[in-house]
């Protein structure tokens, strides 16, 4: 058996042992997410337009990740709507910045890997790189939205009469607690992935100015910054969606009790 299969099996067993049914569901969600990501790549390679493909795949990934983990109905729905809104805002930000920064495709550092490959493939790499940046933030958006929604739904459970205005403030408070650790997840996640590149820069003695304008470096740092923007935006948006959902619920409840009288 290959290493990758054994590692996957170990992860599956551990997730079931620790999380039971929820663990199994999370593992399935992970597998399906991988399938969706691969599907996106294949579809773009078949000349489907990259941005619409990314948006559809992105929404599916968010739905899968959020609804397949064990949360209550209210917080899952709120988390999904909020993360979908963040995804749309993020697309509106990433598209112009990627056009401006000219970081599409590959850099001179990639030339060894590109040996023997034709790069003139007729697919716009600005759009491909935009798609990559959007996809790489999906996990972070889903995680942050779920954490805030779960925190708020717990507050609602303990204080069912909390005003919507106070709830909005509570959302920011919950957000403050998670933002520090979430930033670290992003920082280490991305920097772990780029370790080799940074070692390359110091090994080949790039100057500070060269690094700051290097295609690959700028493209990677932009990805971290996009992810950070999306996590920051997720906090107030999730809190706001939660207040709308609660206000709607209360209106319906008030109407129903009014009808009964």
């Amino acid at each position: 058996m290959s290493t990758i299969n054994v590692l996957g099996l170990v992860l599956l067993i551990l997730m079931v042992l620790v999380g039971g049914k929820a663990g199994l569901q999370s593992f399935l969600a992970l597998l399906l997410n991988f399938g969706l990501l691969f599907l996106a790549i294949v579809l773009v390679a078949f000349h489907f337009p990259p941005l619409p493909v990314t948006l559809v795949v992105g929404l599916l990934v968010l739905a899968l990740t959020i609804f397949m983990s064990s949360g209550d109905d209210l917080s899952s729905t709120v988390a999904f709507l909020a993360s979908a809104a963040v995804l749309v805002i993020l697309v509106l930000l990433i598209v112009p910045v990627e056009h401006w920064a000219l970081v599409q495709g590959f850099g001179p550092e990639d030339s060894e890997d590109l040996e023997g490959l034709s790069v003139l493939i007729g697919i716009n790499f600005v759009q491909v790189t935009t798609a990559t940046a959007i996809l790489s933030t999906l996990g972070a958006i889903a995680e942050a939205a779920m954490a805030i929604a779960a925190g708020l739904s717990e507050i609602l459970e303990q204080h069912p009469q909390v005003t919507t205005k106070a709830l909005l403030g509570d959302g920011i408070t919950v957000g403050k607690q998670i933002i520090g650790t979430t930033f670290n997840t992003l920082f280490f996640g991305f920097f772990g992935g780029f370790l080799a590149l940074f070692i390359w820069f110091t090994g080949v003695h790039y100057s500070f100015g060269e690094i700051l304008n290097d295609k690959i470096f700028v493209s990677e740092i932009l990805m971290i910054l996009f992810a950070m923007v999306s996590v920051i935006l997720t906090v107030p948006i999730t809190a706001w969606v939660m207040t709308r959902a609660v206000a709607g619920q209360r209106r319906r409840a008030a109407k129903r009790s009014g009808d009964e009288k």
Partner: peptide, 19 residues
């Protein structure tokens, strides 16, 4: 832990693989 572990693995998965 079992509710947050899935989404967290996802975060890293997308960072490592979407690239």
């Amino acid at each position: 832990g079992s509710t947050i572990m899935g989404p967290l693995i996802n975060v890293l998965f997308f960072i490592f693989v979407a690239d």
